[in-house]
Each structure stands twice: as C-alpha cells, then as structure tokens.
Design a protein around this nucleic acid. Structure first.
Lengths: 321, 321
DNA sequence: CTCACTCGTGTTATCGGTAACAGAATCCCC
DNA sequence: GGGGATTCTGTTACCGATAACACGAGTGAG
C-alpha cells in the first residue's frame, strides 16, 4: 500500500507537505505542488481513510435512516440509495443504513433522514451531529426534495392543455408537507384557469384508489383527468377506469407521481411526474458532507425540478406500443 | 469519547489487557475479565472503528456490487440491502454501494456481488479480497440464495393439491442457475405426479407474459395453473387472464416468485413463493465477514427455504377481502 | 543595517487501537 | 527445592494521517 511517506520520499519533501497539498494546497508553492502531484499520480496514491479518520477525529461514515416499515418500503428508496452512495463515494465516505430495527446513533459524522413524521422530530432535535433531511419539512431542517408543487403544476397544466373538462386530484391522506405542496400545485393552477378544484384523499395504496373510483364512478363523467399524488394511487385509478369500462385515454386521463418502477409495470404505462431520484440522492449526500465540513452551518433547502413524462394514460401521450 | 485507556484506568489494568479482553478473551483471567467488563459497561465504552481499522490494516468497509442497470433494478434489492446493512452493523462494518457507474475496488475488506453474469466472472476472479455472491452460481464461488428448486416444488405441489389439470411454467429466458433451479423444481414435481411439464420462457416483464398468454389463450383451457418464475411474469399472466375473461381463481391459478413488493400492488393479490430476503441479506453479510476473519477460507453455499404464500390468485388461497 | 514579520517547510506529538516482545509469577517434575 | 516451561500482564513501537509548533529565509520599514 502506498502511503504519504512513499509519496513524500519520491517527491523529496516531508510527509507534512504532501498532506498539505491535499488539504491546504494554498499553503504550498506551485513548484512543490507539481512535484507532489506527479509523485502521487505515478505511485497511484490512495489515502488511507482509517488513518485520516483517526487523525481528524472523524468516522468517514454517515448514517442513512429510513423511518418506514420495511415491508411497505417503496422501491423509490433503492434509487435514492444509489444516488447517496454515489455522492458519498466521491468523498470517501461509507454509509450505514439504519432501519427501525437497529438504532445506533454513535459512530457517524452526520445523518441523512427520510420518512420522518411529526413524532420523530423530538429525537432528531437531540442529535449532536449534522443532519439533513430528504423530503420537505417546515421545521427549519435543511433538506433536499423534488419541487412537488411544480410537479403537480406541470401535470395539471398538461391536463388543461389536453382540454379535459374536469380535473380531479387524488391525494394521500397524510398531513405532510410534500402532500400539501402537491395539492397546492394542483389548486393554484386550476384556480388560475378558473376551474374548481376537487380533492379526494385516501391511503397510499392502489387498492384504495381503485375501490374509491369504482364506488363513485358516476361522479366522474367522461372527459375527466385524475392528477394523483403517487403512482400507486394512479395505478388503482387506471384499474378502476378499465374495470368500469371508461375509455383511457380518450375519455379519461391519469397522471401519477414518482416515476420509479411502478409506472413501468402497469398496463398501459403511466403518465407520471418523474422525480430525479438518483440526482436527489447525490444532492443530499453532497449537502450533508458540506454541512459537516462547515461544522454544521445551515444549508437551507434545495428543490429539484421533476420531469413530466407523458405516456399512455393521458391524451397527448406517446402512442401505445 | 471513551477510549481503551479510560477503561483501563477504571479497571486498574493496562490498555493491552482491555484490548485482549475484547479480542482474545481466552488469554485473560476471569477475574480481570469481570473487572474490565464492568468498567466497559459503566463507561459505556464503544471502540473506535477507525483506530481498530488502522491498527489491523483493515478498512471496516465492504463493497456491495449490484451489477444491473439502475433503471430496471428490482425493489427486491432494497430489502436485501436492509438485511446486509443489519448483518454488517453487528460487526461495525460499513458498506459502499457499487453500481456500474463507480467502480473502485480499493479500500474494502471484501465484496458482496449480485447480478453477476457470465462475463463478470473474469474480473471477479482477479479480486484480491474475499468475495461472496448473492445468488446461485455453478462456478464454485461461495454464495447465499433462496432454495429456488424447493420454492417451485412447493408451488407446483400446491397446484397439484388443488387439482388443476394443467400446470404450466412461465419462465425467464436467461441462462442462469436460479432459472434452471426453478424450472427443475417444477419439472421434478410434475414428473413424480406423472404430469407433462410445459415451459414457456420470455423476458422478465409483465407485458411480455401478458402478451404471450393473451396471444395463446386457446392453448390454456380452464383448470390450468401457471407457475411463474417471477412476480412480474405472474402479474402479466393475471392481467391476461382477466383480459381474456378467465375466472381467477376458479378456473385458473397463478403463483409468482419473489414476494417483494410487486405481489402486494396487484389486484387480486398474488399467491407467491416469498423469499426471505432480509434474512438472506443478513446471511450474506455474515458469511462474508466470517470469510474475512478466516483469511478467505471457502464458505460453501447456503440455501434458505422460501415460504409459499397463498393469496387470491389460486384456489385454496385466502378469500379476497 | 537591523529588527520585526511573513511565508513556506520540516519536526514532533497525537489520534485509539494492536502485535510483538519482555518480564514476573506460578507450576511441575525430578 | 531448583530450573525450565507455562501463564498471565505490562511496555514499546507502530498503523497512516494531521495539527501545532519550530525554524530558516526572504521582506520591508525605520
């Protein structure tokens, strides 16, 4: 294994100079920097993370909390994890995945938390290391999320553009900011167009929306579009429309939200607001690492623009293959 | 932070004795061990992983390779990851998730690999640290997997028990051991019962099986059960049966394989062979850590028994709610 | 021309553990 | 009861990096 000393010897400088080239390059003359850089390259030097961690009193580990029951966990998080992993790798950080089962807060430089509900904020407040949330919150925590409001805005505008006469929102009955934002995007857009908003909320399961739409089918005349707060709900709506004999997408339109996995296994394939999940993961990771580097300085919020994908469940979508 | 020295001081012994109590307890008298243990407990001592790693020339990191395209990645892996994380946490290991994009082999004590195809074995052979695969292989690598053969055996036996007259296998057209095993479980069971096996293979997509069954509907008279190599395929088969007007489960039965996520979002809910995925993850992790500890000694194979879950897509399943 | 000051680099001590060796106490057998 | 083996615990050096301090060379002002 190549160490700092090896590089130092090769470049005819002290270990300390090499270390400085890496961590405080401005303190070293360009001349020496060049020498050191080429020595590092030639030897293919890779810093020893454990040694670095020990010297800095760091761990080079961050913990990622998924505060949700394993069995209902969205495939969504898989993709998020990929992104986080990528963001961490770049800075030689490793991850520990924390679920409801194992709950060890020690031994980490910081935390990424997702799926936090009201009651969690109590212990989150007591954390002594930098924290970044994944997902909107209104409690002042730094976070990264999709621009939920913009997402439903885009979906609603698309429905308007396709001249659906009724535009209904199928939401999730949780009191969480992401849901409020998604509803807000829908409401605002409709009101600007002088349409009446109409919102139905239920549990986030395809069976729930399927049952609901089927049971109230008479309320939804042809030329209705459903803007859904999730792909799961959208899936159920599609099944209900098919079951009730509605013509999709001629008479009915459905747009989901998320664009991870589920939208692909349905038939017909869902139109959806696709979240850039991998990118989001990278961004949370980067935000947290920056926060750690800045000794916990606030990072604010970061909203990323989603992408409206028009497929077979709405007029104007790609023709079904 | 509590260190070895703190514990040593409290117990009136040297650092080394404390270290030995942890790593080589047989070399220390019971008397001292007790002293040290209670000191550790009292101070709530937690070893510093970085220091340990540095001293042992280890990294306390293992890399988990998912050799599959991100976009098609099964939610399956999410659950697996949970399990691996749990297995690693117990031994203070952290994980780096490796995808096709970032491919750094350095800085790890070992590797867990999943989704390996034939062409991957070349570089896997060249790895210099302990490797354990997730998923059957016939190349002599240590691995952990579900007992695939047993799984389809169970499913096929259940179909026989329900007196379906025809029992068809819908498989995945890949030349991989897991698929061979699943087919073998089906074939063996049928032959023992003096039935004729009938296998159709296609890409692992619900649309593929849906299309196939619909196109060949006349070949599948009432009283037919479909044993599927995945829940995705099963999902498509269910849709096809519904579309063609078949009576499920009175005249047709469908059993999937995996039991992760997808089986829950379908309507009706799938009967399926459920893999104990979290447990599998824990086991791979444990196997790898043990292999590391034993300087790379072979660990053999480990097959875990799956569970047949009877739900609404086969006779004898739970009544639909 | 000298003294204080900056700038750039090297030296030393340290982070928290562990292996290898050293040394004291006990054991055992002739 | 003495000498060698055995058992147990402590001392020392080291893993690979970094911060704090030390120090020599150059700079500028009085």
């Amino acid at each position: 294994m190549i160490t700092l000393s090896d590089v130092a010897k090769k470049a005819n400088v002290s270990k300390m100079t090499v270390s400085r080239v890496i961590n405080h390059p401005e303190q070293v003359t360009d001349e020496l920097k060049q020498l050191v850089f080429s020595a590092m390259k030639e030897l293919n030097y890779r810093p020893n993370v454990a040694a670095k961690a020990l010297a800095n009193n760091r761990t080079q580990v961050i913990k990622f909390f998924i505060l949700e029951d394993i069995d209902t966990t969205e495939p969504y998080y898989m993709t998020l994890l990929f992104g986080i992993a990528k963001g961490l790798d770049e800075k030689q950080y490793a991850m520990q995945l924390i679920t409801n089962r194992n709950f060890d807060l020690d031994y980490a430089d910081g935390y990424i938390i997702t799926g936090a509900r009201g009651s969690d904020y109590e212990w989150i407040d007591r954390l002594e290391k930098p924290v970044v949330l994944f997902g909107e919150n209104r409690n002042g925590y730094d976070y990264v999320d999709t621009d939920n409001k913009l997402g439903t805005q885009m979906a609603t505008q698309a429905a308007l553009a396709q001249n659906y006469a009724n535009i209904v929102f199928i939401g999730i009955d949780v009191k969480e900011p992401f849901e409020y934002s998604r509803e807000a995007g829908y409401i605002n857009t409709l009101q600007q167009a002088q349409f009446m908003p109409q919102i139905h909320r239920m549990g986030n399961h395809s069976h729930a929306s399927e049952q609901f739409i089927t049971a109230h089918w008479s309320q939804f005349p042809p030329n209705t579009a459903f803007i859904c707060a999730s792909d799961r709900l959208a899936l159920g709506v599609v099944r209900a429309i098919q079951h009730c004999g509605g013509d999709l997408p001629a008479d009915y339109g459905v747009v989901g939200f998320d664009g991870v996995f589920l939208d692909q296994v349905s038939n017909p394939k869902l139109s959806t607001v696709k979240q850039p999940v991998t990118r989001l993961g990278e961004l949370v990771a980067q935000m947290l690492l920056q926060k750690i580097q800045q000794s916990g300085a606030p990072q604010g919020e970061l909203l990323v623009t989603p992408e409206l994908i028009m497929r077979h469940t709405m007029r104007g979508g790609a023709p079904q293959t």
